[in-house]
Design a protein around this nucleic acid. Structure first.
Lengths: 225, 225
DNA sequence: ATAGAGCGTCACAGATATTTCATAAATAAC
DNA sequence: GTTATTTATGAAATATCTGTGACGCTCTAT
């Protein structure tokens, strides 16, 4: 399973490093941003970020603004870091949909514990139903697919096919194999059918379509660069 | 609608009164217990408590013990009150499944804000009895449904179906799954039956009917967007 | 007995997906 | 370079699925 991604946003690199070190030790994958704008960039680009840790005081966009912007489109859990005892801030945060509020200075152990608690709560920890490779995210439970964060509509067969590809990343798949898995094993049709579906799939996932490679005389292979 | 019930457990009656006053002002119904045993008694007797606020230091059963006991059977949100800076305690709490941790002395406003945030997050106001998503509120106890505050009449099956949808928000449900859950496990009828009920349901909940999404070739999914 | 609500079934139209097909383009072998 | 084979592509043909209204059956209240 891929690691859970956490985005840490703070303008002090020392603080980011501190947080990162503790989170990495817990086997999370940590992304960093030094200001609010960078945070939004990364958030939208990565898209399967499980949690945000936001400092309030930041240049360009502050923590509240980032939070508000993100909440327009996402329910990703957010932890806010604020100066100690700033009660008004804390109240604002809850209105904006902040999930936790930790005041500086804080103990990294507490931070890690809260991160764990939040992820446990949001159910994002144990998921066998999310496949994510090269910016393509398949949520089998919700039956949705996003490419670089943007959701795309796939038909039934397209969904099955793409899932099959991602589940077999780096493995060359013969047409026969594909037919047996994505279609019924007793399917007796034109093997060209696969080509057509691959074509549509490539078109729908845009430039990432290149990840579905043709293996001449054999079949296809999904491979991220 | 019935008020949301919160159980406040603390051996100091002064503290209980303080918390209660603030919560009552927010229109919650507050129950009180002076020790851990009393807390468990009340929790099991009153079936629909939405949230527990537990002091750690108490006679008979302390907060952790109460928490552990409750977690055996229930996922009800729990807020713990502990002495300031007791970091070890806080860490223990998260392991036990505590949702929030507030150190004394605390500002009642913060308490109220966190209570609100937790209840919002848990999606339901009363444990198991009220489901609320996207302006659709199902009161399982009263067997009523309101859409944007306006009550609507649903037949038995429609009610069951809508409930099943809300309980599985964001999850793609195959017709088979729906049949197995909303109908009997041995039901072998026409799958079109579901369509018919979905149609009626959509019509009855008006524009919110769009939340019941069709997943072509697969089934349906309830999703607030 | 009758009317009405709830439920399941059905047929059909419209929507959507899937497959086939013809042809162009690409690739490998010679 | 030429030829044979394979793949890509667009369009057309088929197949499949969903939405919908109608109908009949059962149960209940009147």
């Amino acid at each position: 399973m891929e690691k859970i991604k956490i985005l840490v946003v703070d303008d002090e690199s020392r603080m980011r490093k501190l947080v990162r070190d503790f989170l990495v030790r817990e086997d999370y994958e940590v992304l960093e941003a030094g200001d609010g704008e960078a945070a939004l960039d990364i958030f939208y680009k990565e898209k399967n970020i499980a949690l945000l840790i936001l400092d309030v005081m930041m240049p360009k966009l502050n923590g509240w603004e980032v939070c508000r912007e993100i909440r327009e489109t996402s329910k990703v859990p957010i932890i806010m870091l604020t100066a100690k005892g700033d009660e008004e801030d804390e109240l604002t945060g809850f209105d904006l949909g902040v999930d936790e509020y930790i005041s500086k200075p804080f103990s990294p152990k507490i931070l890690v514990a809260r991160v764990g608690a939040i992820l446990r709560r949001s159910g994002k920890t144990e998921e066998g139903n999310i496949l994510s490779k090269g910016g393509i995210v398949i949520d089998k439970t919700a039956r949705t697919v996003t490419v670089d964060g943007k959701q795309i509509d796939l038909s039934f067969k397209e969904f099955e096919l793409l899932t099959y590809f991602l589940e077999n990343e780096g493995i060359a798949l013969s047409r026969e194999k594909i037919l047996n898995h994505v279609w019924n094993y007793d399917y007796f049709g034109d093997a060209r059918t696969i080509d057509t579906h691959v074509k549509k799939l490539r078109a729908k996932i845009g430039e990432k379509g290149e990840y579905i490679k043709t293996i001449w005389g054999m079949g296809y292979k999904f491979e991220v660069e």
